[in-house]
């Protein structure tokens, strides 16, 4: 299922090449949309009843951002960024240490975040400390 067809590979390579060309040419990204998805002429498709579905591949933007400096920040980067980028955490409202603890424990217990018992407190200290709470 996830093994891509030749057409899909071809169109992604075309997209990647375009992205590189855009980067090399030094033009503004805002002016030239990155061709992260394109429908190559030879992409496979299925059709019926006036609707055509065409095989599609995409490049998702990667987020290389790490958390702002602070005590225990390395641990926070190691444990939290496995599943989600910083933007989720940094947009949360001001919460008490108790609320942050509940959030970290939910991530660990419900979503299997790889947080060991002794790591909850330093992670909570970072998250609450960053907000000055």
């Amino acid at each position: 299922m996830r093994a891509p067809s030749f057409g899909v590979i071809a169109l992604v390579l075309i997209g990647a090449t375009l992205a590189v060309l855009v980067a090399v040419s030094g033009r503004e990204r805002a002016a030239v949309p990155v061709a992260a998805v394109s429908a190559a002429p030879d992409a496979t498709s299925v059709a019926g009843g006036g609707i055509t579905l065409t095989s599609t591949a995409m490049e998702l933007p990667d987020d290389a951002a790490v958390f702002p400096e602070g005590p225990n920040v390395d641990l926070v980067n190691q444990r939290c960024l496995a599943c989600h980028s910083t933007t989720m955490v940094l947009s949360q409202p001001k919460m008490t240490a108790q609320q942050w603890q509940a959030a970290v424990e939910k991530m660990r217990d419900a979503y299997h975040a790889p947080v060991a018992e002794g790591e909850v407190a330093p992670i909570v200290a970072y998250l609450a400390g960053r907000q000055g709470s």
Binding site: R2, V8, V20, E59, L60
Partner: peptide, 27 residues
């Protein structure tokens, strides 16, 4: 951890036929 997640993301990109510097777009 973070590095493994990055590696996994990269594997998915490689599986989709993407190689080279075009793969890692910063949002």
């Amino acid at each position: 951890d973070f590095d493994m997640a990055r590696a996994l993301t990269r594997r998915r990109l490689l599986a989709a036929g993407v190689a080279g510097s075009g793969a890692m777009l910063a949002a």
